[in-house]
Simulated scan of single mutants.
Amino acid sequence: MVAGLLFLAFAYLAVGQAAANRNGAQTAADAAALAAALDTRDKLADEWVENVLDPTKWRDIFDGNGVPFDGCGRADQLAAQNNATAACGIADELYPGYTVEVETNKAVGDSIVPGTENIHAKASATAVIEPLCTFPPLGEGAGDDVLPELTCKDDEKWKLDPEDLVDLPEPQDLFDVHLVD
Rank of each mutant, 00 (worst) to 15 (best):
residue 135 F to I: 07
residue 109 G to D: 09
residue 96 P to R: 14
residue 34 L to A: 09
residue 32 A to T: 00
residue 161 D to F: 13
residue 57 K to S: 08
residue 176 D to Q: 15
residue 162 P to D: 09
residue 13 L to C: 04
residue 138 L to W: 12
residue 117 E to L: 09
residue 87 A to M: 10
residue 44 L to V: 03
residue 171 P to M: 08
residue 60 D to L: 12
residue 164 D to W: 04
residue 35 A to L: 05
residue 72 C to N: 03
residue 22 R to I: 01
residue 66 G to R: 04
residue 160 L to F: 04
residue 151 T to R: 15
residue 72 C to Q: 05
residue 157 K to A: 13
residue 37 A to N: 13
residue 44 L to Y: 03
residue 38 L to M: 12
residue 82 N to Q: 12
residue 24 G to E: 03
residue 161 D to C: 12
residue 45 A to M: 06
residue 41 R to P: 06
residue 22 R to E: 01
residue 169 P to T: 05
residue 56 T to C: 05
residue 107 A to W: 10
residue 70 D to A: 04
residue 180 V to W: 11
residue 53 L to F: 02
residue 52 V to N: 08
residue 67 V to N: 06
residue 82 N to C: 11
residue 161 D to W: 11
residue 44 L to E: 02
residue 56 T to P: 02
residue 114 P to K: 08
residue 91 A to G: 04
residue 166 V to D: 15
residue 44 L to S: 03
residue 83 N to W: 12
residue 20 A to D: 01
residue 3 A to K: 00
residue 143 G to F: 08
residue 107 A to K: 10
residue 160 L to H: 08
residue 62 F to D: 09
residue 13 L to N: 04
residue 62 F to Q: 07
residue 126 T to C: 11
residue 92 D to W: 00
residue 126 T to Y: 12
residue 179 L to T: 07
residue 55 P to S: 01
residue 83 N to R: 15
residue 42 D to P: 01
residue 91 A to E: 02
residue 161 D to A: 13
residue 26 Q to N: 04
residue 25 A to P: 05
residue 88 C to D: 11
residue 6 L to I: 00
residue 61 I to G: 06
residue 151 T to S: 14
residue 158 W to D: 06
residue 55 P to H: 00
residue 41 R to A: 04
residue 67 V to Q: 09
residue 13 L to R: 02
residue 38 L to P: 03
residue 55 P to L: 00
residue 132 L to G: 15
residue 26 Q to V: 03
residue 104 T to C: 00
residue 31 A to L: 01
residue 137 P to C: 13
residue 94 L to G: 07
residue 1 M to T: 12
residue 54 D to I: 09
residue 45 A to K: 03
residue 87 A to L: 13
residue 169 P to H: 06
residue 39 D to C: 12
residue 98 Y to Q: 03
residue 153 K to V: 12
residue 131 P to Q: 15
residue 134 T to P: 10
residue 76 D to P: 08
residue 151 T to D: 13
residue 150 L to R: 13
residue 16 G to F: 06
residue 157 K to G: 08
residue 41 R to K: 10
residue 43 K to E: 08
residue 78 L to K: 00
residue 15 V to H: 03
residue 42 D to S: 07
residue 42 D to M: 02
residue 1 M to I: 06
residue 100 V to G: 08
residue 145 D to G: 07
residue 125 A to Q: 06
residue 40 T to D: 06
residue 31 A to S: 07
residue 136 P to L: 08
residue 173 D to G: 12
residue 64 G to Q: 01
residue 95 Y to E: 14
residue 110 D to L: 15
residue 139 G to F: 09
residue 18 A to C: 10
residue 106 K to W: 05
residue 114 P to L: 13
residue 108 V to C: 04
residue 57 K to G: 03
residue 45 A to V: 04
residue 159 K to S: 14
residue 144 D to L: 13
residue 103 E to L: 09
residue 178 H to Y: 15
residue 124 S to D: 14
residue 52 V to T: 04
residue 52 V to K: 04
residue 164 D to R: 08
residue 5 L to S: 14
residue 28 A to V: 02
residue 45 A to S: 10
residue 113 V to T: 01
residue 6 L to T: 02
residue 37 A to K: 11
residue 157 K to C: 05
residue 178 H to S: 15
residue 57 K to T: 05
residue 51 N to Y: 05
residue 50 E to W: 04
residue 65 N to V: 09
residue 65 N to H: 14
residue 135 F to G: 07
residue 76 D to S: 15
residue 36 A to F: 02
residue 138 L to G: 12
residue 12 Y to I: 00
residue 177 V to R: 15
residue 155 D to R: 12
residue 154 D to V: 12
residue 86 A to H: 10
residue 47 E to I: 06
residue 57 K to E: 14
